[in-house]
């Protein structure tokens, strides 16, 4: 579904991505982990075309994304920190997004309903708490029923109830055969949702395998401990 080939990206002298080679398939829930500044968000932004890679290619559905924009119809993106036009109201944002994507085949407003956002439709974006903004971001990511979901630290800032709703939604998306890419620092969530773990270390893929394989390799029962072990090993090398 998404194939990343030898992608490199640097900002000035800072090499963020140093050759990423990886392939994500439909039906996978991939958890991208790595310490702060390891290039997780940059990699995600490269897939979305928000950041243009210096070298290498990214294919979505076997099509090179360079210079293309239509492929983004199949991607729902929830940013780490959502930035929205401040003087617009929640309702206006949703109406605008639907208006801008009139050709969308089917809409999925279930998340919006579960978060009861329609009651807040008249609230301006600048008056929202961080958590409510995250709810808006999550609902927008799922709104157009995309085949690929890219969620950048989705549960950070959400209250327990809201994050449970989102987790259920992610598991539902997986059962529908969608590809979900999540970055998260919360290991219990990785355990709950992800079936594959990708560990980025200093701009390279240090580990990319299924959760069961990860547990087997490290001999640990818990994903958190297994990942901690891998992190320690890579730091020694």
């Amino acid at each position: 579904m998404i194939r990343i080939e030898k992608v490199e990206k640097s900002f000035g002298k800072l090499n963020i991505l140093k050759g990423i080679d990886v392939e994500f398939k439909a039906g996978q829930v991939v958890s991208v982990i790595g310490h702060n500044g390891s290039g997780k968000t940059t990699l995600i932004k490269c897939i979305l075309g928000m950041v243009v890679a210096d070298k290498g290619n990214i294919y979505v559905d076997e099509k090179n994304i360079a210079g293309d924009f239509r492929y983004r119809e199949n991607i729902g993106y929830m940013p780490q920190i959502g930035h929205y036009p401040e003087n617009m109201k929640i309702g206006q944002i949703f109406r605008m997004m639907k208006d801008l994507r009139k050709n969308a085949v089917s809409l999925d407003e279930s998340l919006m309903e579960e978060y009861k956002l329609s009651e807040l439709f008249e609230k301006p974006m600048h008056a929202l708490s961080g958590g409510t903004t995250q709810k808006v971001s999550a609902s927008l990511a799922f709104l157009f029923n995309p085949k690929v979901l890219i969620l950048d630290e989705p549960t950070a800032g959400l209250d327990p109830l809201a994050s449970e709703i989102l987790k259920a939604k992610i598991i539902e998306a997986k059962s529908k055969g969608k590809l979900v890419i999540i970055t998260s620092h919360i290991m219990s969530e990785v355990e709950e949702m992800a079936d594959t773990v990708m560990y980025l270390y200093e701009g390279k893929v240090n580990f990319y395998n299924s959760v069961t394989e990860l547990k087997k390799q490290t001999g640990e029962e818990k994903v958190g401990k297994a990942i901690a072990k891998i992190m320690k090993e890579s730091a020694h090398v």
């Binding site: 075309g49 928000m50 929205y84 036009p85 401040e86 801008l100 994507r101």
Partner: peptide, 16 residues
């Protein structure tokens, strides 16, 4: 000031 709006749009299927 419209930077946020632009940021929102670039992740959508709309050409730059």
């Amino acid at each position: 000031n419209a930077y946020q709006f632009i940021e929102l749009l670039v992740a959508q299927p709309i050409s730059r």
